[in-house]
Simulated scan of single mutants.
Amino acid sequence: MSEASSETRSVVVERELPHPPQKVWRALTEPHLIDEWLMKTDFEPAAGRRFTLRGDWGSVDCRVLAVEPHRRLSYTWDAMGLESVVTWTLTPVGGGTRLVMEQSGFRADQQQAYQGAGFGWRRFFGSLEQLLARMGEDAQ
């Protein structure tokens, strides 16, 4: 299978979490909670809103593309030559939420960024799961 230069790949991470979608949504959209599991940010869940994620290694420029409360969140993720889109999808399942994160837009020549994102998102998901556990069940 040949890879055309216009083809892109995605990193997908999926988890079933023992928390309701409303609680998971809060962790994905409230800046003080995003700070705890992802990076420092000035995020607001409003389509068209620009925001920045700041880590030790640098920053990510983002713009909100879509907001469907408790269901779907999508934003651009531009950093170090990578122009991609991160989409979060929340689906209620018995006793919790299936959370899927897809980061799309990796070009064939961005193998290092692709592999780094796969590793990074798995780590971020671990931090997100720890945060959700700390938030307590009353945090809807």
Rank of each mutant, 00 (worst) to 15 (best):
S2Y: 05
S2T: 15
A4H: 15
S5N: 13
S6P: 00
E7G: 05
R9Q: 09
R9P: 01
V13H: 02
V13Q: 09
E16N: 11
L17Q: 01
P18W: 03
H19C: 10
Q22N: 07
W25Y: 11
A27R: 04
T29P: 09
H32W: 06
L33I: 07
E36H: 10
W37P: 04
L38A: 10
T41P: 02
A46D: 11
A46P: 00
A47R: 08
F51T: 03
T52R: 14
R54D: 09
S59G: 13
S59Q: 14
C62S: 14
R63S: 10
R63M: 13
L65D: 04
A66F: 00
V67C: 11
P69M: 09
R72F: 08
R72A: 15
M80G: 12
T87I: 06
W88Y: 14
L90G: 09
G95C: 08
G96E: 06
T97D: 03
T97M: 05
T97I: 06
T97A: 09
S104I: 03
G105M: 00
F119D: 13
F119Y: 15
W121S: 12
W121Y: 12
F124I: 00
F125Y: 11
F125W: 06
S127N: 15
S127G: 13
L132I: 03
M135G: 00
G136A: 06
D138E: 15
A139L: 04
